[in-house]
Nucleic acid binder design. Structure first.
Lengths: 236, 236
DNA sequence: CCTTTCAGTGAACGTGCGTACACTGAAACT
DNA sequence: AGTTTCAGTGTACGCACGTTCACTGAAAGG
């Protein structure tokens, strides 16, 4: 291990012909476009990815600057060129992770006429997204109750935001007469179930997925049907 | 659990005044009852309590043997007289915490005739127990996705057990015709909501409690009413 | 009374950590 | 062409950690 030291410079100097013309445009290190700020951005990404991977085992609390640096292939102190602290790294990951989550709900929104279809589609999209982006969903699930107060709070604030968004979506169902407070309550319940389901997906074998899908569908159906019936029978 | 035999003799030897006499018989270290194994048990408890307290900030992952030892007032190496590792400490805390949770559901079970009363009583008992035993509930919530794999798995296994218990309880509601699989699904949903509510309670100010209570009641009602209506309309 | 047991001691070790500091060399700017 | 910027380097520091080992002294037990 650690065959590095100076060879990074060697890698850079491999195609040293840049500004003049090169007839064959194929690049052996393909994303070699740009320099300076591009390179910095690439390192930043590498740090985020390394952190996302390393956190899977230990949580953000058990993540050390030196581990990340080694994984990325830089010296520990170079980390500070990109983030002030591990906490700042964590906040960036929170941001990223919730972008992924928002992309998911955008997927659900399009289409979906009947109520039954909304349920089916929601579950399908959830399962698909969680499996396609395990790292980010796992990160959220973990750091929601994780060791860093500032990251934990950030996750919770994002969830509250997400919950409010879902509440306005729910208003488009035949629940027009509901108060926004009650929509919030329902939304809170649904988001909670979504988190639980996500966690199930995350540590499930592939063969368990149909069962999880079935369960999620049933639960979502229960919640919606329950909300409708409960409100209609006890007007407030 | 090795409830040893010898401590009766210790009780007899409580007044150990023999050699020199002191006119004032008051002992400045009053809980001096028992010796050896009693003292060991007391130290063990102190370790568990210290760990429970220290984990509040950092999670079990961020807990060090030396911290605990300092808090308890023993030298680091003495820790090993009581636990093989921090993980073993964690497992003991899992055990303890779920005892607390089971005590809770035992409280719910007694009484509770009508459905509405079950809901009210359940929520009341939940809020009360979580507030009375913040440390244990917080520990469960944290370590459910915590850093130690063995502790995390233990928590999840306990939750599955708890879920199954709740499912058999639910069978006593007018849901006799439900399959046990469907009861499990409902139970899973309810337990998830319970966890979410517990977390809300844990980091809520006292004045928010009535709102949380209201929300929990509404959600539990939605779930039960929803389950009943959904199943009756789509027999499977 | 004499021996055994064992909870707690205290010094010492190797390791990984965050962070400081002075540095280098290529890209960017003037 | 000359200067500035700045991502990444390398050394070195003090600290907290888990674990080892030989120990002590009082309680338990024959």
């Amino acid at each position: 291990m650690t065959p590095n030291t100076v060879h990074t410079r060697a890698l850079i100097s491999v195609p040293p012909i840049p500004d003049t013309l090169s007839p064959v445009t194929s690049q052996p290190t393909p994303p070699a476009v740009g320099s300076r700020s591009d390179k910095k951005e690439r390192t930043r990404r590498a740090i985020l990815d390394a952190a996302l991977g390393l956190t899977e085992d230990t949580g953000l609390a058990g993540l050390s600057l030196r581990q990340v640096a080694k994984e990325v292939g830089i010296v520990p102190t170079a980390f500070y060129r990109h983030f002030d602290s591990i906490d700042q790294l964590g906040l960036a990951l929170v941001e990223e992770s919730f972008s992924s989550l928002r992309a998911m709900i955008r997927d659900v929104r399009q289409g979906s006429p009947s109520l039954g279809q909304i349920v089916d589609r929601s579950v399908a999209v959830l399962v698909e997204h969680v499996r396609a982006d395990r790292a980010h969903f796992g990160f959220i699930a973990r750091e929601q109750s994780g060791g860093s107060a500032v990251v934990r709070d950030a996750v919770r604030r994002q969830f509250e935001l997400f919950e409010r968004e879902l509440a306005t979506d729910l208003a488009r169902l035949p629940m027009d007469h509901w108060s926004s407070a009650d929509l919030q309550i329902l939304s809170n319940l649904i988001v909670g179930a979504m988190i639980t389901t996500s966690e199930s997906i995350l540590h499930a074998e592939a063969r368990d997925l149909t069962e999880i899908r079935h369960r999620a569908r049933s639960q979502l159906m229960m919640m919606i049907v329950g909300a409708l019936n409960w409100k209609s029978r006890q007007p407030d």
